[in-house]
Amino acid sequence: MRHHFDSLLDQLNDAMIVMGSLIESAISSATKALVEQDKQQALKAIAFDQEIDQKEKDIEALCLKLLLQQQPVARDLRQISAALKMITDMERIGDQATDISEITILLADTSYIKKLEHISLMAIETGKMVTDAVDAFVQNDLVKAHGVIDADDIVDNLFVTVKNDLIVLINEDVANGSQAMDLLMVAKYYERIGDHAVNIAEWVEFSITGTHRNSLK
């Protein structure tokens, strides 16, 4: 019985890693598409979303099956409930990557009104956060999880910088307005991805220590 349970837990772990790799790939494709104005890459990032959604459903079903049939306790229960919460955030990240790619396709044929230096930085930073969050889950690494939670400030600050830059650009020429809005959206999406990565890291922390940051003490 226990053996069966263990193999199901392993299966869950593997599925989580696969979903993690899917969102990593989606983000890196979306970022590459945005920087190189590459429509093909953008479409690839959008294609990942379906797979991510499917994986979310699979994992959800597996978690419920584990909870109902095996009645896990203690650490196992934490791991499964953390997984259930994490996939929601992961699925949202997949959606954000799709949203970014849709804007990329929209802007692909026009040149950007400004160099994407800060947005690129945001993309790199959030990509790293997501990778680290998944790594933290895979390796049960508390230090990495904390690293992700701390890195959120960098992304938030970058978002403010991008916003201010865009305001300046709109003030210079109102014609910049439409693209500035789109770029602001892109920046916001990256900022949200960062937040979701933090959520994942917090659930990893919960799965390891048994306490969640937002819980009442």
Partner: peptide, 13 residues
């Protein structure tokens, strides 16, 4: 252990 612990490359998966 799972190979996913070593690499999460989508193409390889």
């Amino acid at each position: 252990k799972s190979i996913l612990l070593l690499t999460r490359d989508m193409d390889l998966q």
